[in-house]
Design a protein around this nucleic acid. Structure first.
Length: 397
DNA sequence: CATTCGTGGGT
DNA sequence: TACCCAAGAAT
């Protein structure tokens, strides 16, 4: 190789700035020839063997792995969607004590289910768990379905989750493609594009590699590999059972892969929020509609500020529109900044006094006046926790 | 195929 | 600090 091999250029098309800017040499870039089905068929047996041996020695001891109960495994798979193991652990343990069986979950009311989920985020997962539990009781004799087509037809269960459950609970040879597997495979073949742009190829790879003799352990093992060694930052390649098979490692690209797509900055919204007090020491809360953001959870009413509007005007207007009552807007209680997955908010929270009118659920499902003792039994979004703390603090002092 | 869905942790 | 990302699914 001559001088050309050190030629620096962006692998990505910087013209549209879509991919993050990372530099690599021409020889490295030319090695990124993966397109379509990778030729890993011949190496699959050796890859399986190396991975399973490593898993036997270094695999994580996780509570749901000690169980073969499809219900418990299902719960864990849903909780683990876009959520780290460490975060899930306490929720998982509490959940199984609250709802030990599918039947227990099915007969619970949604508020109890959402309260158990409170703080985990992506609340459609909890609503779908509840719905699906009732479906399993009614349509599947109370047992999580063993047929892939039946499983993936259930609310909240996609291809990866179905594969995760069927392989873990029933040892079925069904492939998975979660964040860990995507990253591991992207490095293994030095995938020359963001995983999101190569889903078909990655699924093929996952299916091709899956050990038909040990699907349960293989799927768990490849996830462990991604979670503990083949991490996003500073991967431990020297300890990796796939080191000698890994194209990224061979090309010293492990820190550059997988490729990422840069995202537009999140929009920021200013929200006016009302903590409405009545004359009996109660506060008004409302339950959000089932669909959309934070569906089914409780909140303090309010809404987005309009151009050339003060926070006080915003709060008074929103409360009139949403509840059809008149209030007096008093002092600012607290200001809460919070980031959701696709936008940021500042909650400008004001103490308010109920003046007149019976509140109507115009843009929500339900309204309640609650005391500070009762409020803890309602599921609230994370950002509202600070507001509740501030109200309690205010009541003390 | 792109967007909408939470929250906590890491850099 | 600000941004990225984590055992994804639904629309």
């Amino acid at each position: 190789m001559g001088e050309a091999k050190r030629t620096q250029y962006s692998v990505h098309d910087s013209a549209d700035g879509k991919y993050s800017q990372k530099q690599m040499s021409l020889s490295q870039a030319s090695a990124l020839s993966f397109g379509g089905t990778a030729n890993l068929g011949h190496a699959a047996p050796a890859l399986r063997q190396a991975l399973l041996t490593w898993y036997g020695e270094q695999g994580r001891d996780l509570p749901w792995r000690r169980s073969r109960d499809p219900y418990a495994i299902w719960i864990s798979e849903i909780m683990l969607q876009q959520t780290q193991v460490k975060t899930v652990m306490p929720y998982y343990q509490r959940w199984l004590k609250l709802f030990p069986t599918v039947a227990d979950l099915a007969k619970a009311d949604q508020q109890t289910v959402l309260k158990a989920w409170e703080g985990l985020g992506y609340y459609a997962r909890a609503r779908n768990l509840h719905k699906t539990a009732q479906l399993i009781v009614k349509q599947h004799d109370g047992v999580f379905p063993e047929v892939f087509e039946d499983a993936i037809a259930l609310p909240g269960i996609g291809r990866t989750t179905a594969g995760g459950i069927l392989s873990a609970a029933y040892n079925q040879p069904v492939a998975i493609l979660d964040g860990n597997v995507k990253r591991v495979l992207a490095r293994l073949v030095a995938l020359p594009k963001p995983p999101a742009k190569a889903m078909k190829e990655l699924w093929q790879l996952s299916e091709q590699l899956l050990d038909p003799q040990h699907p349960r352990d293989f799927n768990q093992a490849i996830m462990d590999l991604g979670a503990t060694l083949c991490t996003r930052h500073r991967p431990s390649c020297l300890l990796c059972p796939w080191q000698s098979y890994c194209t990224a490692y061979r090309q010293n690209l492990q820190s550059e892969l997988p490729m990422t797509e840069s995202r537009a900055p999140l929009p920021h919204k200013q929200i006016g929020v009302a903590v409405i007090h009545d004359n009996d020491g109660r506060i008004l809360i409302d339950r959000r509609k089932q669909e959309g953001l934070l569906g089914g959870l409780w909140e303090f009413p309010g809404g987005k500020i309009e151009p050339n509007e003060s926070f006080e005007e915003c709060v008074k207007r929103e409360i009139k529109e949403e509840l059809d009552i008149d209030i007096e807007v008093n002092d600012r209680l607290i200001t809460v900044d919070h980031a959701y997955s696709h936008f940021k908010v500042t909650l400008n929270v004001f103490n308010c006094t109920h003046i007149s009118g019976e509140p109507k659920p115009i843009e929500c499902d339900e309204i309640k006046w609650v005391t500070l003792d009762e409020i803890d039994s309602y599921p609230f979004p994370k950002a509202n926790g600070q507001i509740i703390d501030a109200i309690k603090e205010q009541a003390k002092g």
